[in-house]
Design a protein around this nucleic acid. Sequence first.
DNA 1: CGGGTCACTTGCAAAATGATAGTGACTGTC
DNA 2: GACAGTCACTATCATTTTGCAAGTGACCCG
Lengths: 145, 145
Amino acid sequence: MTLDEINLGTCPVDRGLMRVGDRWSMLVLRDIERGLTRYEQLRTSLGIAPNILSRRLSALVEAGLIAKNRYSEHPPRDEYLLTDAGRDFLPILMAIGAWGRKYNGAGALSRHRDAATGEIVRPVVVDANTGAPIGSRPLRLEYPD
Amino acid sequence: MTLDEINLGTCPVDRGLMRVGDRWSMLVLRDIERGLTRYEQLRTSLGIAPNILSRRLSALVEAGLIAKNRYSEHPPRDEYLLTDAGRDFLPILMAIGAWGRKYNGAGALSRHRDAATGEIVRPVVVDANTGAPIGSRPLRLEYPD
DNA sequence: CGGGTCACTTGCAAAATGATAGTGACTGTC
DNA sequence: GACAGTCACTATCATTTTGCAAGTGACCCG
């Protein structure tokens, strides 16, 4: 019985947070995206305690967001790579980043630029059906039967 | 010196998580959006311990995502309302919800429907410049000087 | 053989979380 | 007007999680 089989609520937000709902996990994902895929790279970049990093990494593996990949046998060396689920989470981090920039963005911050257009990326959450930003149209919350 | 004046990194994601980076905070925001604005409503809906809820609520007030509003003097009754910053965070919760539905969505889940079209909302994070989903175009990460 | 790197684990202290009980301001009811 | 009941908490204490520091094992390089 994994942690998911118990207490399955009906709220998809809760379901998501169940898998990544803490700060370190998200920062690990962000760093892996930046190319920091090895334990030592993550540890020094984040300034996280080694035991905590170990636990977060195994939790993320268990949750299916990253996979541990041995790329060298001698010496034994592993890297952590994003799975499809992990890559799918990255846009959310971008959205959180945009929010953080807006509401807690004093000083100079890093940012993403579109490689083709050169423009600074402005992440927004929209409804794929209408293309309208979430929050710009009234919604109705629906519960399952 | 608030918690923000120290350890200001250059990453906007970190800046965002600094303010909301835990499960309860996000679930509180979700519930307030659903109209559960009072202490007792939140406590029973979330099944959270009262001391924890108190602390989360004051942290969210301090972080500027919600505001405490006294709507009755006799008896003294307060409600917690979303600020602009808090409302701006809701689309992120929708995106997390969409992710949670996709990767941890066994069973029946609640969902949002567009009030006008009646269609089920499908939140996606796009670049406002191009309209393209984040992840569909190569990006370049840029650091401040 | 000795030092150095990498990827951790172990042991213990400190902090956060959670369960339970209690408190103060009321309100409404006999 | 005493008494149960609701609301919005606080206080106390156990449990859990986090974090620091030190250590370990596999290996590589001189």
